[in-house]
Design a protein around this nucleic acid. Structure first.
Ligand code: FES
Ligand code: FES
Lengths: 150, 150
DNA sequence: GAAACTCGGACTGATTTGGTCGCATATTCA
DNA sequence: TGAATATGCGACCAAATCAGTCCGAGTTTC
């Protein structure tokens, strides 16, 4: 149903949290989990994935924790989501080994691939350093107008 | 993982198929299902949903079947998907009966709501009559730019 | 060497998805 | 009239995915 997983949500929260504390020492998984009420063990595994994807640096040991591996302005939401949930395909038939039974006859695959690309673009342009809370109805309205015109 | 369900895929295929045969008589669920190798019973239920959503007109009986209720140029992919899968939320905590445990502290909900809106716009711009044509990447790119700024 | 971390797989229960069945209703036509 | 062929709709089931836990490692600090 075109929904982000909880893990991706947690991951984005953690990345944003780390982006706001780049100055400090490394933060442990538990620190971040406690700050948002996330199950610590669950977040730990998510951070490990982000680490393996090269988005975080980790340090073991008693004073250890995680730190952003790159400038928060250069890390996109897309990278975070992909690192956690794997490559994102909007089409349902691309799930591992071969195609679904309709792949040869499916007439909407190509159009949807383009939609997929659009969504990727949107997510790639959102940097974790820029994720803010302002709802700003005016802008979304302008966006709607823009779409109408084009 | 941000994927469309198979049902939505089937629904889009069926709608596109019907859009290409507006002239003819009503097509039965089985006709369409056979044309694409879709399980007939599954497609039948999907078409019923599209019917209830007002996107299709149905006729019972031996010469019955389905027909588009509106001009195929006016029906968006978004409408089809929503009719089948229900309202689409990119955030994971909107799943019915209250919020997830993190809703109060979640810092990425609002930013993601904007992403959600962007995706909606993209899907609303795609009409089933035009699914073969290019969704115009330039515009979606500008749209993505727009989202980033806000 | 103990404490506080990360690392990573295995595991379980809950939810969602994909699909089927069965029965009721409506329409055509012989 | 009544058989044939449609839709209409809920219940049902199996498989996949998701969310979260557990546990047994390794690492660093003190
Ligand atoms: S994308 Fe696989 S059947 Fe349409
Ligand atoms: S959207 Fe619900 S926790 Fe972030």
């Amino acid at each position: 149903m075109l929904k982000l997983t909880k893990k991706a949500d947690y991951g984005l929260m953690a990345m944003k949290h780390l982006a706001e504390h780049v100055d400090r020492e490394a933060l442990s998984a538990k620190d971040i989990a406690d700050a948002y009420g996330i199950p610590p063990q669950a977040l730990a595994k998510i951070l490990q994935r982000l680490m393996r994807a090269g988005l975080l640096e980790s340090q073991c040991g008693i004073k250890g924790g995680y730190r952003l591996a790159r400038d928060p302005h250069s890390i996109s939401a897309y990278e975070v989501i992909q690192a956690i949930d794997g490559p994102l395909f909007i089409t349902s038939c691309t799930t591992l080994r071969g195609e679904c039974g309709q792949s040869l006859r499916c007439t909407v695959r190509e159009p949807l691939r383009k939609v997929n690309q659009s969504i990727e673009e949107v997510l790639k342009r959102i940097r974790i350093a820029h994720m803010r809370e302002e709802p700003e109805m005016v802008e979304t309205k302008q966006l709607a107008d823009y779409v109408m015109i084009s």
